[in-house]
Structures are given as structure tokens and as C-alpha cells.
Design a binder for these strands. Structure first.
Lengths: 149, 149
DNA sequence: GTTAATGCAAATGTTTTGCAGTATA
DNA sequence: TATACTGCAAAACATTTGCATTAAC
């Protein structure tokens, strides 16, 4: 029940509970993230923060985003077009499973993704061209290794 | 049947058919992408290419990756940790639907992703912590607009 | 008073671009 | 021979880091 309450706490309270120093910049950044209805990138957040706190620096934004992420207060998405990996186009559709420890990538077939595509397309009136499913976790090797330690 | 044959064509043949100039660098890059069993990033590809063609430049690699992508010869994935978007962690799990024209992001619930998670985790012996489903397509507004023109 | 967080500037790493020279069609 | 492609160097861009100063505890 502690975690359910988190969303209703003020930014200050949340930070205080996490044993982090409550600075004006840090609270502001977390508030802005909570208030926003859109997803923000670091620069969006920086520009918004400057409206209330003109001397805030971009490094502070980055450092705090990392902190919030570590604390599980925010989620990160990869919408943009940077640093890709490429593969020759395969004849069959497949999805990806990544080990977050060793970076191993497993490809798996996912016939259900086609059903998804239809359902979601109908529901939101989208003409959907691509479905990407990406799962992250620990592979058996890395799990054994960390069990041992 | 033309497209099925594509995978069996040599890199040179493929490029020639696409009305692209067949250069040694370009053919090599496409061959390397096809031979590789792993996903490669630009730098991986650059290093491999240099083994056969020491004077090739990284710009050539980037330019050709863009070309191959445009021609639909390769697929691009976003595994790495660059340029993120953030949102305050929501209480409910949800997935994303992106319009590739206007960039609109729709969040949708996807209860099935939990079933996925279990199935795939069991099959590959992974302890899966995250499931991300991302669909891309055209929203109704952008579709109407392009219908009209 | 200690220690952590900040702001600034410089460094880093990836991707893009301008341009003169080179190779393909 | 005309034009597209290449290599090189520099620019652009996002993100990270070092360090002296400042603020939270």
C-alpha cells in the first residue's frame, strides 16, 4: 500500500521518503514530469524547468532523470531515432527478447501480434503498419550467476 | 514472387535491380548485413567492413544504412540507450501507438501482454521484467489528409 | 560542518553534412 | 562524360563528466 500512495504524494514527500535531498530543482523536475500529459525528452523538460527556475542546467536535468529512473519514479521510452541496430530484413516477422544483463537478443515468433494489430487498429482508428514487441529480462545463465553470488 | 527471390539474390543483383550504383563498399556492406547472425550497429558494421576494405569511411556506412532502410532491405531496431522520452510512472501498465506522420502517441491498455510475458518467459527460460509493445501507423486524421491529396 | 547537488564548461560518442576527388553507368 | 558515391574533416546533436561553488541535512 505504500507504493499505491506514492502517486498521491507531493514531489517533495516522495523524494524525502526516498532519502534524497530535496532541492528546488529536483522537486520542480519531478512535478513537471507528473503534471505533463505528454512524454517529455530531456530538452523539453529543461525548457519547461527554466520557466520557473531560469538558472537550472541541462546536466541537472540529466542527472535527475537518471535518479528518478533508478528510483522507479519515471519510465523511459525509446521513440526517437538514435543509435540503431540493423539486420537484413528477414522473411518472417519476429519479435525481440533482451537480457538486460548480458545483452543477449533472442528472436521469437509472435503470431498473436497480428491479432493485436487488428484489434488496436480498429479501436483507435489507426492504419497500423508495424508492431514491435520487446521484452526485457534475465536469461537463465545470468540468473544462475546472480543466484550464486 | 519477385520479393521472395530477393533474399536469394546476391547483394550486387539486389542493388542493381533497385537502380542503385553498385560500388564495392555498398555491396560489401549489404553482404555483411546479410551474413551476420547478430544485429549490428553502425560501428560494428564499420569495423567488419574495414577488414575487407580498409579505407571505407564511417559516413559511407551511415549513408548506405539509410539507403538500405529506404529500400526496405534492412530493419532497424532501437535497443540502445539514446535519446529517451520520459513519463511519470503510471499506476497501470500500458503500451504505445505512434502515428508516423504527426507523431501523436496513444497509450492503450494491453492485458494480453501479461499472457505473452508468461508464455515467452517459459519458452526461453527468461525471467521477464518488462514488456513493451509499440505499434506504428497512420492515425485517422493523417490518413484522411493523405487520401485527399 | 559534512556531504550531496548544482552550474558551468569541456569532453564524449554517435550521426550528419560540405566538399573535392573518384568511380560507375 | 555526367552524375552518384566516396573519404575526409568539420559540424551537429544528445549525453556525460570534472570541478569549484552552493545548499541540504
Amino acid at each position: 500500500m505504500v507504493s499505491k500512495a506514492k502517486q498521491k504524494m507531493s514531489a517533495q514527500q516522495t523524494l524525502n521518503r526516498s532519502n534524497q535531498r530535496v532541492t528546488a530543482q529536483r522537486s520542480l523536475l519531478l512535478e513537471l514530469l507528473r503534471q505533463s500529459d505528454r512524454h517529455l525528452d530531456a530538452d523539453d523538460l529543461y525548457r519547461r524547468a527554466r520557466r520557473k527556475h531560469p538558472r537550472i542546467s541541462l546536466s541537472t536535468v540529466y542527472r535527475n532523470l537518471q535518479l528518478f529512473k533508478k528510483l522507479g519514479l519515471i519510465e523511459e521510452h525509446h521513440f526517437a531515432e538514435e543509435h540503431h541496430h540493423y539486420e537484413a530484413k528477414p522473411p518472417t516477422e519476429h519479435q525481440h527478447l533482451l537480457c538486460r544483463n548480458c545483452g543477449k537478443v533472442v528472436e521469437f515468433a509472435c503470431p498473436l501480434s497480428q491479432k493485436f494489430k487488428k484489434d488496436v487498429g480498429r479501436q483507435y482508428d489507426f492504419d497500423i503498419s508495424g508492431v514491435e514487441v520487446r521484452m526485457t529480462g534475465l536469461c537463465s545463465t545470468c540468473r544462475k550467476r546472480s543466484d550464486g553470488s
